[in-house]
């Protein structure tokens, strides 16, 4: 399968993009070192409080945004935040989804009904709006964003896994396993789940992009990371007042908007390319003859 991933030019591009981001995240302290005496490396250092963004210079490679936050530092350390948010949320969501989905799928009956009704309730809300509501209740912070996104996303996974388990449950080899006396949980874990895992993988990899986008949107709206935190959405929100420069130089502050946004774009693009390739490979119907 790895070979197939590498052969496809689009997925190869996705993998390369993600690898670059991984490297940036791991080596963040080296690429953008935290100045001495600065306590929290995730808070972007800023010299002074001037609201006017400064263009790229030797000291500030990508320039600064409103409040003199160094953009370069912000996007580099923002990579770490992005991975944090994406992986943590997906991790939680997949685990919850597997547990609840398996229970619902395998045991059926009341358990299934109850779980399905609960997912219905959550799915009745457009995701961003429910996330907004939850974050405003918990108070804006990156942690609230992660919790909110996890709460909002798990129902889809529970449903997906339940659906797969329902399908697999009807298959003959499950009957065979039970025929030889395997216990229910054993059957689920060793047989039903592995088959259900593949579509979940596809959905998860496509979803990380969406999760990071939502988190960025929430931060942009002011509901996520606090001001000055190294988060791409947060950085972009600084640019809101500076999209149009003074007369004669309308694009003067382009770097404040464009650069953080490009990082988001490529990060999400990488995951989407990868997820798309996963789906093409794992979906036998679309396989080439």
């Amino acid at each position: 399968m790895i070979r197939q991933l590498v052969k496809n030019p689009l997925s190869l591009a996705g993998i390369i993009i993600l690898l670059i981001f991984v490297v940036i995240a791991i080596f963040a302290p080296l690429i953008a070192p935290t100045p001495d005496g600065h306590l929290n490396p995730y808070m972007i250092p800023h010299e002074g409080y001037s609201p006017i963004p400064q263009p790229p210079s030797e000291e500030h490679i990508f320039g600064t945004t409103e409040g003199q936050y160094d953009i370069f530092y912000g996007v580099i350390w923002g990579t770490r935040s992005a991975f944090q948010v994406g992986l943590v949320v997906i991790g939680i969501v997949v685990v919850i989804g597997i547990i609840l989905g398996s229970l619902a799928g395998y045991f059926g009956g009341i358990i299934d009904e109850v779980i399905m009704r609960i997912t219905d309730i959550f799915l009745a809300f457009p995701t961003l709006i429910l996330a907004m509501a939850i974050v405003s209740v918990l108070g804006p912070s990156l942690k609230s964003v992660m919790i909110a996104l996890a709460v909002v996303s798990w129902p889809s996974y529970a449903r997906l896994i339940r659906g797969d388990i329902l399908q697999v449950r009807e298959e003959d080899y499950i009957e065979a396993s039970r025929g030889i006396g395997a216990s229910s949980s054993r059957v689920i874990i060793r047989h039903a789940l592995p088959n259900a895992i593949y579509p979940t993988l596809v959905m998860a990899s496509l979803d990380i992009g969406a999760i990071v986008l939502s988190a960025a949107a929430l931060s942009f709206l002011g509901l996520g990371a606090p001001e000055g935190y190294a988060d791409w959405g947060q950085l972009t929100s600084f640019a809101r007042n500076w999209i149009v420069g003074p007369y004669g130089e309308p694009l003067k502050y382009w770097y404040a908007v464009t650069i953080p946004g490009l990082f988001i774009l490529f990060f999400v693009l990488g995951w989407n390319l990868l997820g798309d390739a996963f789906r093409d490979i794992l979906d036998p119907r679309l396989a080439r003859r």
Partner: peptide, 9 residues
């Protein structure tokens, strides 16, 4: 993959 808010900006 485009962030909507970024596109708008």
């Amino acid at each position: 993959s485009l962030p909507t808010f970024w596109l708008g900006l």
